[in-house]
């Protein structure tokens, strides 16, 4: 129960309304430091909306999202401007429909991800344009880091190719590598295994496990592929119609009647029966 003892991200009473539509309704959950947390639920349950709230693309209607940094300080993500969430709070994300810089090479994609530290070392461009300061060495280090992630995702051979030329599975891995180049504490992955074949999805599992182990990055992922969810996650949060219906270890969640009902659909009689059992 690491997510209760040492939470990295604490989401409390998160509500997001779009006009009359309540996409997320009073959602509270915690993401443990060093955990792989899966956010699952049927289509339209509001999972991506939760991601957009956490990563600053939406401002939540109500509730707070607290990020507990390793030094003990708290950052309220819903109050930060969108671009500080990655830079200050160290939360990185990938997208459900891959968003790479398709006309730029793989290496350039990973260097764009290191924009903020490079900007500092180039003296906000003023020193860099005159060739002063430590920009040269900083860029070399940035390239080394990019090389490391390209090797890790087995894309190093195509480092000088445009990202748009890559096959689908490679693009997914490149997006993860790009997000990791920002040195995140929390990496949010929106359906990383979508469209991958079983071999690729196994490879993805290993990549995610090694990210957690070697880099101390906690992961929050939305996933429909249960082989990924059940194998690697420590903690599963289940959403349905914007409400949390289950929260626990994968084995607990798997046997939860409400989760089964949400996923499989049941007769009205059975719903009453289940409701009677769990006492709603």
């Amino acid at each position: 129960m690491r997510w209760i003892q040492d939470p990295l991200l604490d989401v409390q009473h998160l509500t997001m309304r779009f006009g009359g539509l309540v996409a997320i309704n009073d959602l509270s959950f915690k993401v443990g430091r060093g955990d792989i947390t899966a956010l699952i639920g049927p289509n339209g349950a509001g999972k991506t909306t939760v991601f957009n709230c956490i990563t600053g693309f939406y401002k939540p209607t109500e509730g707070l999202i607290a990020m507990r940094k390793p030094d003990g300080s708290n950052l309220l993500l819903e109050r930060l401007p969108g671009n500080s969430i990655n830079w200050k709070a160290k939360v990185a994300r990938t997208f459900q429909n891959i968003r790479l810089f398709s006309g730029m090479t793989l290496l350039e994609n990973l260097l764009v991800a290191q924009h903020n530290p490079l900007m500092l070392s180039s003296g906000y461009t003023f020193l860099g344009i005159l060739g002063l300061g430590g920009y040269r060495t900083a860029e070399k280090e940035a390239i080394e880091k990019a090389k490391f992630w390209l090797e890790k995702t087995r894309l190093i051979d195509r480092a000088d190719d445009p990202a748009g030329d890559l096959p689908y599975g490679d693009q997914r891995r490149l997006e993860i590598a790009r997000a990791m180049c920002t040195d995140p504490l929390l990496l949010c992955l929106d359906e990383p295994a979508a469209g991958l074949n079983p071999r690729e999805s196994l490879e993805l599992n290993n990549l995610l496990l090694s990210i957690r182990k070697d880099h101390g990055t906690s992961l929050l992922l939305i996933e429909h592929d249960m082989s990924v969810v059940m194998e690697i996650s420590d903690h599963v949060v289940v959403l349905d119609y914007g409400t949390k219906i289950a929260d626990g270890t994968p084995s607990e969640v798997k046997s939860d009647p409400r989760v089964i009902a949400a996923y499989l659909g049941v007769d009205d009689e059975e719903v009453e029966q289940v409701e009677a059992e769990i006492g709603v």
């Binding site: 693309f57 969108g82 969430i85 990185a92 810089f101 730029m104």
Partner: peptide, 12 residues
């Protein structure tokens, strides 16, 4: 020019 949303997600 390539993708503004991805830029924002990378802290730019």
């Amino acid at each position: 020019r390539e993708d503004e949303i991805a830029c924002r997600s990378l802290g730019i």
